[in-house]
Structures are given as C-alpha cells and as structure tokens.
Design a binder for these strands. Sequence first.
DNA 1: GTCTATACCAAGATAGAC
DNA 2: GTCTATCTTGGTATAGAC
Lengths: 226, 226
Amino acid sequence: MEAGPADAVDEYGIPIIPDPTDSAQRKRQAIIDGALAEFLAEGYSAASMDTITSSSGVSKATIYKHFGSKERLFLAVVGGMLPRTYAGLQPCRATLAEAPDLRTALIKLTTGSARALLRPDIMLLRRLVIGEIDRFPQLGQLWYRVSYDMINGPLVEAFTEMNARGTLATPDPALAVQQLVAVTVGVLQRVRTFSPDAVIDDAELTRVVTSGVDLFLAGYAARPAG
Amino acid sequence: MEAGPADAVDEYGIPIIPDPTDSAQRKRQAIIDGALAEFLAEGYSAASMDTITSSSGVSKATIYKHFGSKERLFLAVVGGMLPRTYAGLQPCRATLAEAPDLRTALIKLTTGSARALLRPDIMLLRRLVIGEIDRFPQLGQLWYRVSYDMINGPLVEAFTEMNARGTLATPDPALAVQQLVAVTVGVLQRVRTFSPDAVIDDAELTRVVTSGVDLFLAGYAARPAG
DNA sequence: GTCTATACCAAGATAGAC
DNA sequence: GTCTATCTTGGTATAGAC
C-alpha cells in the first residue's frame, strides 16, 4: 500500500502514475534504512529479519525478492554505507602541499578527520564491521581500501611532494602517514572503541590532535640545517 | 562418567577417592574451554549452547547449573580471559627508567608488546570484545582497565621518573604513553584488525616499531641544550 | 512486485530421575 | 551434581494468491 499514489495529481490536476520501478526503489531504500538500524543495534546474528520487516514497512517476502538472503542484505547495507562514511573527508588533501603553514594545515586536517570518525554512528559501524570480520572478510578489505583511498593515499602523495620541495623529510611516506593518523585520530579512536560513551570535548580533541601533530613534525619536519 | 576415578589407586595401592568438588572443577574448566572456543569462532549471538555442550563433554543442564545463563557464561569466560592475556607483558616495565640505552629499551618493550598483542588468538578476542561492546559494556571497561594497569600505568610512572632524572621531556606523560603505544603497536594492530591474515614478518614488525620509537624520541627525548 | 500464511528448524532454558 | 528428554519461542526462508 503506497501512500495514495492511486489518486495523486500534479499542479495541473493530471494524475501522476508512479513509475513501477520508482515504488520498488523506495521500498528498497526503506529496507536498507531499516536493516542498517537493526544491524547496528543488534549485530548481524542477533538482528531479526522480522524486525527489519516491521520497521521498513514492507513484507518479508519483498525483502527476500530484493536481497536474496540475510547475508546478502547485510553486505549490501554495510558495504554501501562505508563509502558514504568517508566521503565527507575529501577537503584539505591536495591543499596540504601548498599550505603556507604546514602545522596549522595538519592540525586542521586531522581535527576534521577525528571529528568525523569519532561520531557515534560511525564508531558503531566500525565496531560492527570489526566484530563481523571473520564472517565477512570482504568488509574488512573494503574498509581498508576505502579508508586508504580517502585518507592515506592522498596524504602519501602530499608527503612525497613535500619531500621533493624540501618542506618535509619522511624517509617512508606511507609509514609516516600511518604514524600521523595513529598518533592523532588513533589515540582518540582507541578510547571510544572500548568506551563508546567516553566524553571527548573540543578542548580535549584539540589538545590530543595538536600534541600528535607536534610530535609528528618533531620527527619529520625538514630541518633548516644538517 | 569420569575417566576411571572409581578404581584409581595411588603409589601404595590405596584407592584415590576424588574430591567431589574436584570433578565439578574439572567440568567447569571444560565448559570454559569449550565456550571460549565457540564464542571466539561464532561471536556471542551465533554461538550455540548445544555446540558448547558437545565440545565440553558435559550436559547442557550442568552448564546452566554452573553459569546460569548464556550471558553470564560469556562474561565469565571472556572476562576471565582478559587478565591472562595481558599477564605476560609485565617484564621491562620498572627496568625502563634505569636502562642504559633508552632507545634500545623502548624498542625491546614495544616489540614484545606488539608480538603478544598481534597474536591471532588475542586479536580474535579483541575483535569479539569490540563487536559486543554495546551488549556487554563491562567488557570494554575491563579491557581498558586491564590494559591500563598492565601497560599504560607502569609506563606513565617510568616516564614521570625519567622526566625528573632529565632523560626524558614529556609535558604530559599519560598522553605520551598513549602516543608511544599508538605509533608502534597501534599501527600494526590497525592493519591486523581489518585484515586478520595480513602477513607481518619480523622484519616488518621491527621496521615499524623502530620507526615509531625514533619518532617518539625525536619529540620527547631530553635535549642536551635548551 | 508485493502480500499473507506457513514450513521447517534451531535456539535457550528447564523438569525430574538418579 | 549430573544427565536425558522436552518445552517454548523465535529464527530464516518460501509457496502461492493477487
């Protein structure tokens, strides 16, 4: 039962006949939304297809027509969520190599990443994927690939360029990126991983990120002499 | 059916009558072993009490007499495993402040921690706890507490002492410890978390740990001159 | 494509004998 | 304390009408 598409009309009074595919698409999205909520709340095994059926407002048979099985539904829902999670982290990447003040730029970049990745829903998704790695190794590979493409990859390029320019001195840019991320975002992530409700206010976040960037620069900033 | 305690005798031919509590204790341990294996393999929700019954060799009723419920069994088994996991990391702690070469001592300490914490079974336990944090927040708190007592706490003390001696200069020792761990063990743990089968040979481990320690010392080693 | 109704099975937990 | 046998509920997935 769609919400009254049978008698819907446009601004001229012309009946709107919804594209059949359109209805299916909306139901598909409703299923995805309901499934994501259920999986995040219960994990894979304890998640109930009945609950997803109720919350999405469609019948169970429809879910199975669309996704085939609980496993496929899980992969589709979680796998589809990962790219969207890291999509908002693009800015500041190519800007880095040409930033007037490297320290400020690094702090801004890591602070932004930390804010995004520490969001409760993102941490929930992260815990879910980690807990289901043995059952769904694909998701681990996907997470790794997405986070590499969105964060590590661009930073490695930026570091390499800055090495050439002489503003940075990282013998192993790939490792240096991992270290920068670990010493800023990683420190805070570790806390939130085991204590989801730990309070990390802005002052604390800034303090940790700043200290991490300074440590990084102490090791890798280009030395004026020697 | 115990393994022949009915006719067991000691070295003088005197029948050995097993303490009734002894049998219960052995069964209890068998349950714990079987449960741990099942929980690690399947996670909490998908783990089957029937499977634990089979693998432990006792009846299901006995399990419930001992532990009351699946939840309590899980908490007892996993919670009991955590301290044993970190128990082997004690050496090198107080030794640190008096080590002749700080860099070598730090590399040795972090290498040992990394070797232990990257073990496949420990990583499996870690993933299990992380995935069940929402259902069992106690385990998150316990993990945090145990790892703090075994690693961070002693290191904070050592750093504080070295600050006083002038061999180290960490404005915030607690944060410095987190950074050291993050930049050595943490970098490798992140890889193994999402790619359980990633190959990390000794050369790679040494390379990462050494680089991490050097980065740490670049920031916090006491400078000869102001 | 979508629904209702159901098949089929495995789960956690317990009763009662010994 | 321990076992065998069972209760009850919920799970995933599908058959068949529209």
